[in-house]
């Protein structure tokens, strides 16, 4: 029962997460000229060329759209769940968790069957005498894939925050004459903000870096930042540029997170549990 029990754990993480990140930085800040490796900002200069700025902007916009939609449809769901009681509530929570145990690639791939030209939705439209639509391989399909995959990550933390609210605070507000709207916007919503912040984080982070969803549902037409990194490492083989883009994305995430957390200044203990 000593501190030294943690040494293998910390050493493991140092070797397999900190050293790799240092290597990423090393590759990002160096370039090869005349067979010699030297320090240079070239990779970053290239990462901020308009062509790549568009990719970053697109990733940001799509991830933000997915996060906003998750919030708009997830908040009411969390609210309804938090007001349920007993057996029914635990069953509903169970049902919310179950889809996450199905392989996420297959769940995403399954949308092809629903959205494609001869898919379920278009066949239904056709049967109703309506024209078929191009649903698949669009940006909307990519956002749909993100919302689908990450919605539960928004609902669960908001639900947790809502169910922690002390009912007597709500009663006090009602006793003091607050109407339904006032109780919600001035008591319930502010108290649920920590849940909203972690929900937003847990949706935005995976959404801005995904390369699987745009590749499957976007048909790989519009590259997102994740697909750009994947291409550089596995297809183009330009590790230095790929590393620079990785550094940029980590920077973007840190900036975005500090903006989100500025909204919620509560001192948390860190971690997801």
């Amino acid at each position: 029962m000593k501190r030294s029990a943690a040494y293998p754990y910390l050493a493991w993480l140092a070797v397999f997460t900190i050293i790799p990140l240092i290597l990423v930085l090393y590759y990002a800040f160096t370039s090869v000229s005349d067979g010699a490796v030297k320090f240079s900002p070239d990779n970053f200069v290239r990462a901020f060329e308009p062509m790549y700025l568009i990719v970053m902007w697109r990733s940001f916009v799509l991830a933000l759209a997915a996060t906003a939609i998750c919030f708009l449809i997830g908040y009411p769901a969390a609210y309804i769940l938090a007001r349920k009681v007993g057996e029914k509530k635990s069953t509903l929570l169970f049902l919310l968790l179950v889809p996450m145990w199905m392989n996420f690639l297959l769940r995403t791939y399954s949308w092809l069957t629903i959205l494609e030209r001869n898919g379920i939705i278009n066949n239904a439209l056709f049967a109703l005498g309506l024209p078929k639509m191009d649903l698949l391989y669009t940006r909307e399909a990519v956002v749909l894939g993100m919302v689908y995959n990450f919605l539960s990550f928004m609902i669960l933390p908001i639900y947790t925050a809502l169910s922690k609210i002390d009912a007597s605070l709500i009663e006090a507000a009602q006793d003091l004459g607050a109407g339904k709207m006032n109780v919600f916007f001035r008591v319930i919503f502010p108290l649920s903000l920590p849940g909203v912040v972690s929900g937003v984080t847990m949706v935005f982070l995976p959404a801005i870096t995904t390369f699987v969803i745009p590749n499957l549902l976007g048909g790989g037409k519009d590259a997102l930042i994740g697909s750009l990194i994947e291409q550089q490492f596995l297809r183009v083989g330009d590790w230095r540029f790929g590393s620079a883009v990785s550094v940029v994305i980590m920077g973007l995430i840190v900036i975005a997170m500090s903006l989100f957390y500025a909204v919620d200044s509560d001192e948390g203990e860190g971690g997801l549990f």
Partner: peptide, 19 residues
């Protein structure tokens, strides 16, 4: 240190370990 792999995007964790 514990939070690095938890918060780091999967793709960055993946490529950095590959490197």
């Amino acid at each position: 240190i514990t939070n690095i792999p938890v918060m780091n995007p999967d793709i960055v964790t993946g490529v950095s370990m590959m490197i």
